[in-house]
Amino acid sequence: MATVILVRHGRTTANASGLLAGRTPGVSLDETGRAQAAAAGERLAVVPLVGVVSSPLKRCRETAQFILDRQKGPHAPVDAGLTECDYGQWQGQTLADLAKEDLWKVVQSQPSAVTFPGGESMAAMQARSVAAIRRHDAAFEAEHGPGAVWAAVSHGDIIKSVLADALGMHLDMFQRIDVGPASISIVRYGTGRPTVHASNTDAGDLSWLAAVQAHGDAPVGGGAGHAAPPAQEA
């Protein structure tokens, strides 16, 4: 299958003030978030993306634009399957206040049992986000071949749930995964199983993705890894 680059949106005004934005409309990147998104776009500039798909929320569309500004071809359609979890009555509250709720402990220890009051269950969140990623991945491979690389711009819990699925982890373990603002994670869906090539990175060369090849079995012993990036001239 193709390779998907999972990009979380950059830091927002809500992140900086400790609010759970959820699906609140109009939440934008702050100055730090714009710098983070620009850095992610710069890292991905060496990778000819066949497509960029974004959550419909503003902070993701803004982040996607920083990526598109360094690409030549793709545009960024939105997909509601990649939107933020519906936190229901939790939306708009401070994390400090939410941490006092009994449900907070369940979110931390047994997210598969959580349905946010007036909102979405975390299991439903994972199911629809994984389905969206796999659907787009299959479509990009069908159109561009197994070497296709594309990007999905989404939210922290969404990307964590996709990574947990790719790693074969139960949703109850997904809080062990960290996904920072504007971080880049990489998953390739093979015929037998997904392979996670990177998680929560905010630095490092990605030029090897421009020549990614289809693969089958995992190399015993770890293999030779990716080719080193070309040396920079002084």
Score class of each variant (00 low, 15 high):
234 A>G: 15
64 A>S: 06
122 M>W: 08
178 D>H: 13
78 V>T: 12
7 V>I: 10
198 A>Y: 07
45 A>S: 09
79 D>G: 06
111 P>D: 01
10 G>I: 00
99 A>W: 07
154 S>M: 02
107 V>C: 12
155 H>A: 03
101 E>S: 08
204 G>N: 00
84 E>S: 05
129 S>V: 15
31 E>F: 09
71 Q>F: 09
18 G>N: 03
207 S>W: 04
222 G>P: 02
99 A>L: 11
83 T>C: 11
52 V>T: 00
169 M>C: 05
20 L>F: 02
71 Q>D: 02
89 Q>E: 06
219 P>N: 00
41 G>T: 04
175 Q>P: 09
167 L>T: 10
189 Y>P: 05
227 A>T: 10
117 P>V: 08
72 K>V: 15
215 H>M: 11
100 K>G: 04
102 D>M: 12
121 S>P: 05
175 Q>W: 09
202 D>R: 14
116 F>N: 06
31 E>A: 14
105 K>I: 01
91 Q>A: 02
150 W>F: 06
145 G>R: 10
227 A>W: 10
113 A>K: 15
4 V>M: 05
58 K>Q: 05
50 V>I: 09
64 A>E: 02
38 A>G: 08
24 T>C: 10
58 K>H: 02
169 M>I: 10
125 M>D: 13
99 A>E: 12
126 Q>L: 10
167 L>V: 09
1 M>F: 09
22 G>I: 01
107 V>A: 14
81 G>W: 08
157 D>G: 15
169 M>R: 11
32 T>K: 10
72 K>D: 15
159 I>F: 01
13 T>D: 13
204 G>V: 05
149 V>T: 02
210 A>T: 03
54 S>Q: 03
104 W>D: 07
234 A>N: 13
189 Y>G: 13
219 P>D: 03
129 S>Y: 08
184 I>L: 15
24 T>A: 06
86 D>Q: 06
50 V>R: 13
230 P>M: 13
145 G>L: 07
110 Q>R: 15
79 D>L: 06
94 T>E: 05
220 V>G: 08
107 V>L: 12
233 E>R: 15
34 R>C: 02
143 E>N: 14
68 L>K: 03
86 D>H: 08
57 L>E: 11
82 L>T: 06
6 L>W: 01
118 G>A: 07
218 A>D: 11
21 A>K: 03
17 S>R: 12
136 H>V: 07
3 T>G: 08
83 T>I: 12
23 R>V: 06
177 I>T: 05
194 P>H: 09
112 S>M: 11
69 D>A: 05
134 R>W: 12
36 Q>I: 03
156 G>F: 08
216 G>Y: 03
123 A>R: 11
158 I>E: 02
63 T>S: 04
200 N>Y: 01
198 A>T: 07
233 E>A: 15
65 Q>M: 11
209 L>R: 02
108 Q>H: 07
208 W>D: 13
203 A>W: 06
42 E>K: 13
46 V>H: 13
